[in-house]
Amino acid sequence: MIHSPYIRKPASVQRVMGLVLLALLPGIAAYAHTVGAGILVNLGIATCTALAAEALVLALRKRPVAIALSDLSAVLSAWLVVLCFPPIAPWWLTMLGVTVAIVIAKQLYGGLGQNPFNPAMVAYCAMIVAYPALMSQWPPAGGMDFGTQLGLILGGARDIDGLTGATALDALRTGLHAGAGPVDVLRQGPAFGFLGGSGWEWIALGYLAGGLFLLAARVITWHMPAAFIATLSLVSGLFWLVDPARFASPLFHLASGGAMLAAFFIVTDPVSGATTPRGKLIFAAGVALVAWTIRNFGAYPEGIAFGVLLMNLCVPLIDMKTQPRVFGHRGGRR
C-alpha cells in the first residue's frame, strides 16, 4: 500500500544527472574547439566503457541493470574521468581509468549513492600514479590536428616531445624549479594565455558557464563553488602579494588546470561530499587548500584530485560536526 504523500514533484536521478551532463556541454564544446576533437573520441570510448562496466557488475550483483544504466550516473562519471585525463590519452588508458572509476570506486562500494570517494578522482589518482608519463602529455591548444590526436588515442607511436607541450601549471612549476625566472617572465612562454594556459582559459570559462547554469537550475548550491573559489583565491592571493616572483596570481590559479571543472562539477558531487551547508563550505575549502599546496609545493602539477580524496575521508566527521540547528532548538524568537 502506498502512503502519503500521494503526489510527487517531477524529479528523478536521471534528470539531475542529465542536467549536469548538459551543463558540461559548453566546456566540452570549448575543449573540442580550442584543443581538438580528440576529446570527443575519448568521451565516446569512456561512455561505452562505463555503461558496459556498470552493466556487467550489476548483472554479477544480480541487480536490475536497465534502471541503473538509465540514471546516467555512470555516463557522468565517465565524462568527468575523460575531462580530467589528457585528451590524447590512449584508448586503453581511458578504458582503464573509467573501469577503475565504475567498478572499484563505485560498484565495489555498493553502487550509486554508496561510494565514499569521488569515482573520477579515484581514477585520476590511480592513473597518474600508475602512468605518470602518459597522464602528463597534454597537447598545446590548437597545436595538434585531429588526425594526430586520433592516431595517438588509437595507440600510435608517441614521438611525444615534438608534439606535446607542458601545460601552464607544469611549465610554471618546472620553470620555477629550474630557476628560469620569476613568474611574470615565465608567463611570457608559449604555454600561457591571458589568464591561465593558452586556449585552456576558454574551456575554464565554458565550465564556469555550465556551473552557473547548475546553480540557476538548483542542482547544486552556492556553498561548494563559492568556498572553493574563495579559498583558492585567498590563499594564492596572499602568497602572490607577498612574493609575486615565486607565486602565481589567483586569476591564474582559477583559470588553470581543473579549477573551474572542480569548483562546479567535481567537489559538488553529492554522494562523496559533505552535505550540511557549513560542511560543504569546509569540504570545498579543504579541497582548494590541498590543491594549491600541491600545485606549489607537491610532486604533481595538479592537486585537486588528491584534495578531493583527502576531504572525502573527512566527510563523516565534517557532517557529524556541522549538523544544522533543528526547528525550535536553540534560537528563534524568545
Binding site: I2, I7, V13, S73, G111, G113, T275
Partner: peptide
C-alpha cells in the same frame, strides 16, 4: 496521482 516510480538509491543530493 500516479503511483511513484520505483525507489532508487539515495544520492545525498540534499
Amino acid at each position: 496521482m500516479p503511483p511513484p516510480p520505483p525507489e532508487q538509491p539515495c544520492i545525498r543530493c540534499g
